[in-house]
Structure formats: structure tokens, C-alpha cells
Design a protein around this nucleic acid. Structure first.
Lengths: 284, 284
DNA sequence: GATCTTCGCATTGTCGGACAATAGGACTTT
DNA sequence: AAAGTCCTATTGTCCGACAATGCGAAGATC
């Protein structure tokens, strides 16, 4: 009894696991109409079975799942197969290796999801125009929610962020990071996870563009600082209108700066803007 | 020359792939401060290397990647290892099995991403309140964008959708599907992929709630139809204000209906609301 | 010559077994 | 009790093997 596995036995797969050979059957009866049977590879079935149990709440986050050997036994498939199934879930963030390298169910983190989404958007060659259009919509709404719900702790963090921004007005890299952080804290303060997740990818994607702007537009840092200060103030007073209108200005300012860097708004978000998406690979 | 692989050789991994053994090294010098070396398992390195080439555009979507054997050779690791790496990318949607079961680079589809996000939101136990709050924000903005950009083809599809809705006013299941479709078409018409992706998960999550409402609130179907008709009309006339205000009403209506079904707005989106997320598993 | 079959081949999915590295836990030493 | 040492369970990786599958080429049929 080394590892006390999950409550229920996985009921996902029909015993020794058929390996196909049904294809011939189908061919023999092609006159008749049957539903096309979903014939998934075993590793997929493994992943799906586990995922389903997680989604149904039968196994909860932070709970350990059995060892690979356990799963081999329960599913009745080879370890290699189990491992491939595990990889699937590991990637989607529903499983992770925890203490003692054991498998634990885990909540897919926002950062991870957002990273995936961002990369996907890049591959789809979304344009800067789409990006800024989204920002113009999402950021003001975010701060609107934040103005209503923000906590003292979050205000403190914003304040520290602004102070640090003031100190590092000449360090482009740090500025970009701090700007992202500022907006992330606000998103967090919005207290709406659906919305946070909707906003996050855009936040990630502008990061490098921000750096570009700082390098190109001399007055950008001070303008950013001013806007951040005013927004912080508005948030303190829970002044929705003020916060929102300044956020809108702030975003417009970003767009103007972006244009001044000479990028083509209708072109895709380009490669040089993306290394940072890879520095996040540790989470992955 | 059976398989013409990708342009560049993968340069990801140092030849025969060290299997660790660096741990000891670190221990020997624990006095000194070093950056903690990122020691990733080989399958991760494989996945990362491939992903990086994709992100850098060295391999483009729809291009075939080598066979497993090719990758084994290029990376100098075992096939099992390569396969595990592939699983990672397969799950994130960057690789898929295409014709001849070969590996092709592919664009992660929105539906797939949205499904993942939705499931994640459920696991995080987001509340109905968060969900509807997002809808109140995202849907009106979506239709606002749509009113500006919608094409004739999209208008046609909306019209067909509305007609079908009219015919199936008594079929709860079909209604829910049609409603989702209606809003998806509008999202598509918004012509902003960043925004589409931001909205889609919310769209998926309300689907089952919609069904509930139709079963509970008798007048819901006709009200929905009316709203859809008016919005379609407004879209035809590119009447942003009208479209937006009706969308807002429409969402509020949904919320009222939701309340009448007796759900706890501050409770998490419950299990019975989610089977449909699994009927999507085919995409997965 | 065109179409249909059949066969072989390349590739994937799955299996079984093997072993080094590692992380913890148990055990011993001081 | 703290520190060091051995033990064991588990993972990461490798190897070799084979059935199933899908395709294209060779051969058969009209």
C-alpha cells in the first residue's frame, strides 16, 4: 500500500483495450449506415478518462493521482502508453509533478493558459490593430471593475509599483515589466476571473511593443508614470469615471507611441516582439 | 528520400543528450552562487525545440514535420522520448496528425483553445456572477464591432440562423445551439481575433445555462427570438447603438432567466451544466 | 488503356523489459 | 538532535519488437 490512489477506479477503457481491427468490420458492412465509431488511440483514452474524472470532481486539485505503475495496472495498458497520456494532461496543466515527483491534479494556471493563447494568436498572425482594438475595449472595462472591487492590499501593491516605476524611469526593460505588472494588478483587482483570463493574453502581447516604445519615444516613460499615478489615485477614491477615462487615454497613448515606432498596424505582431514569450517557458 | 523534412536541422539538444548527472556537480560547489540551471527532461526539450522553430516561423503551419524516425535521428534520443515530446505539442494544438498520419504543424484552433479555457474556468470554480458580468461587457462590445465590420455573407448566415430559430422554437436543445451559433457568428463578424478568443469561453460556458432557462422560463424562447431579430436588423443597418443596446438587454434577459431557474449566482458553474463541454472532445 | 486488386512498404501505436538517476525515507553515527 | 549513509520506489530514458494502418506500386481484369 505505498500509494493511496484516487477514490474511484478508472472506468475509462474496455479491459485489455482493443487495438483497432474494427476498421475491417466497418468495411464489411458498408451498405448499412452506422454511426462512425470514435476510435481513439489508447493514450488519448487514458488522458480523456483521467480528465473526465477531474472535470467531474471525482479527483480534486492538489490530490495525488497514482504512480505510473498504478495507472498501468488500472488501465491495463503499457507504461509507455500511460506516459503519453500523461503528457497530454501535463501540457494542458491538469496534471503536474509535485513533491516526490508524484503526479498531482492541478489547476491550469492563468499565466500558462495566457501564454498558450498568446502564442496561438501570434501564429494566427493577428495584427497590431486587432490587439490595440482589444486593449481599448478590455483595459477600460477592467479598471472600471477594479475601481469597484479593489482591496487595500492591491492598492498597496499598485503604490509600490508606481514608486518603483518612478525610480526606474530610465530602465526600459524594467519599465515594461512594471507596466505589465501595473495592469495585471488592476486586472486582479477586477475580481472577475473570466474577464482576467480574457484580458491576459493581450497584456502579454503588448509587453515587447511597450519596450519598443520606450526606446523610440523619449517622453513615453514620464507620460506613462503620470497616467499610472492618476489611475492609482482614482482607484483609491473608487472613482470609476476618472479611472476609466484615464485608462482609455493611457491606451490611446500607447497606440500613438506604437505608431511612432513605425510599426505597420495592419501587419502581424512580428517576431522580434516575442522573445519574452519564451522566457516564460519555465512555467510551460 | 521518403520524407522531405523541415528546412533546418533541429539544433535544440546537445548531441547524445545528457541525462542529468549535473546534480552532483552543483552539490560540489554549493558555496558559490550560480544560476540554477534549467534541467529539463529530454521530452520537454524536444517539445520546446520544435515549438520554438514553429514560433520563429522556420516551420510554417500545414508544413509536414519529419516522421518520428526522422526526429529520433535529429534529436538523438529514443523514439519513446520523441513521442512524449510530440504529445505535448499535439495537445497544445501546434502539431496534428494529417494525411498519411504524418505530423503537420498546425494552428491551434479557437474552438480547442476555448474549450481548454472553459474547462479551466470550471475547475477554478468561477461563479455565474463572474460569467454574466463578463457577458454584459463582452457581448455588447462584440456586436458593436460587428455592426461596423459585418459582411453580407455573415448577415445571410445570421438570417438563416434566425429563420431556423423561428422554426424550432419548441426544441430546447436546438434553441441553445442556435443561440450559441448566433452569437458566434456575431463574434466572427467583429473581425478581431483577439477579441473573439477573449469572448469565446464565456460563450461556451453559458450554453448549458441557456438550456436550463428554456426549460424553466416559458416565454424565454420568444423573447430570445425577438431580440435576435432586432439585432439582426440593426446589424443590417450597421446601427451600432441599436445593436448594442439590444444586446445589452438580451444579456440582461439571460441573467433574469438564469435567476428564475433558481441557480445561485455566487455559486460555481455546476457540473450538470457541463456535459456539452465533453461532447466537444472530438476536437480536443 | 483504364480501372480494379493485391501486395509490399513505411510509419504509427502498442507492448515488454531494462537500467541509471533521483528523491525520500529509514537507519546509523556522532 | 543533527548529519551522514544506505535502501527503495519511481521516474526518465533506452532498446527491440510487432500488429494495424494507409499508400503507392505492381499486377490482373475488362
Amino acid at each position: 500500500m505505498t500509494s493511496p490512489p484516487i477514490s474511484t477506479i478508472f472506468a475509462g477503457i474496455s479491459t485489455p483495450l482493443f487495438k483497432g481491427s474494427i476498421g475491417t468490420l466497418v468495411l464489411l458492412m458498408k451498405k448499412q449506415k452506422f454511426e462512425k465509431l470514435e476510435i481513439l488511440p489508447a493514450y488519448r483514452q487514458v488522458a480523456d478518462a483521467i480528465e473526465q474524472q477531474i472535470m467531474e470532481g471525482l479527483i480534486k486539485p492538489e490530490e495525488p493521482i497514482g504512480t505510473e505503475a498504478d495507472l498501468v495496472e488500472q488501465f491495463g495498458v503499457n507504461r509507455s502508453t500511460v506516459r503519453e497520456g500523461i503528457r497530454l494532461l501535463e501540457q494542458s496543466g491538469m496534471l503536474r509533478r509535485g513533491e516526490k515527483r508524484r503526479l498531482y491534479v492541478s489547476l491550469p494556471g492563468y499565466d500558462k493558459l495566457a501564454t498558450r493563447i498568446s502564442r496561438s494568436l501570434v501564429l494566427h498572425k493577428v495584427t497590431f490593430r486587432e490587439l490595440v482594438e482589444s486593449l481599448e475595449i478590455l483595459e477600460p472595462k477592467t479598471i472600471e471593475l477594479a475601481a469597484k472591487h479593489i482591496t487595500d492590499d492591491q492598492l498597496d501593491r499598485l503604490e509600490r509599483n508606481v514608486r518603483e516605476t518612478e525610480e526606474k524611469l530610465n530602465d526600459k526593460n524594467e519599465l515594461a515589466r512594471l507596466d505589465t505588472e501595473f495592469h495585471s494588478i488592476i486586472a486582479e483587482a477586477a475580481q472577475n476571473r473570466v474577464f482576467i483570463l480574457a484580458r491576459e493574453p493581450s497584456g502579454l502581447l503588448i509587453y515587447p511593443a511597450t519596450q519598443y516604445i520606450f526606446e523610440t519615444v523619449p517622453e513615453a516613460p514620464s507620460r506613462l508614470l503620470e497616467a499610472h499615478k492618476i489611475m492609482l489615485d482614482a482607484l483609491r477614491k473608487h472613482d470609476v469615471v476618472e479611472a476609466k477615462s484615464w485608462m482609455y487615454k493611457h491606451v490611446r497613448d500607447f497606440v500613438k507611441g506604437l505608431i511612432r515606432t513605425g510599426v505597420d498596424l495592419d501587419g502581424p505582431i512580428a517576431k522580434p516582439h516575442l522573445e519574452h514569450l519564451f522566457s516564460l517557458d519555465t512555467y510551460l
